[in-house]
């Protein structure tokens, strides 16, 4: 019933089918978004990759977040040492910057399920 080539083909097709999963995940990465939170409450979700600046009012003043092809980062902050700005970009799912003095958090989330990771940076 089964020739030698039938068996080889069946095994090869099963392997190719299983291997297509990581390949698809690699070639079709999901869209990423940045969730902007103030005091833990989500106030805006912005898709990564857009070029824009968003101003957010926190507990001690205005924070300005810039979005570009590299990700999202704070460019203005009322905090004393401006460490939010020094923390740089968030770009991968799970990246989080929490600016404690102003109570503003940037959190990168995926398109499917929101990965609610702990902060990478807490700045004062």
């Amino acid at each position: 019933m089964f020739t030698k080539w039938d068996k080889i083909l069946i095994i090869a097709l099963i392997v190719a089918s299983a291997a297509s999963y990581p390949a698809i995940r690699h070639f079709f990465p999901g869209e990423k978004y940045v969730s902007i939170e103030v005091l833990g409450e989500e106030i805006k979700v912005v898709r990564l990759g857009l070029h824009k600046e968003i101003s957010v009012r926190g507990i001690s003043g205005e924070s300005i977040i810039r979005f570009d092809e590299f990700g999202a980062r704070f460019v203005e902050s009322p905090s004393s040492y401006k460490k939010c700005i020094g923390a740089g970009y968030v770009k991968d799912v799970g990246d989080v910057i929490h600016c404690e003095e102003n109570g503003v958090t940037l959190r990168v989330i995926g398109s499917g399920r929101a990965d609610r990771a702990k902060p990478d940076f807490i700045t004062r």
Partner: peptide
């Protein structure tokens, strides 16, 4: 993207049904 993520499942499923069909046709 989610459509493509179904592809591995449907391909493995196709191998199984192709096997059944092939045995019957044999």
């Amino acid at each position: 993207r989610e459509i493509f993520l179904l592809l591995p499942v449907s391909l493995i499923f196709a191998v199984a049904t192709g096997l059944i069909n092939g045995i019957v046709v044999y």
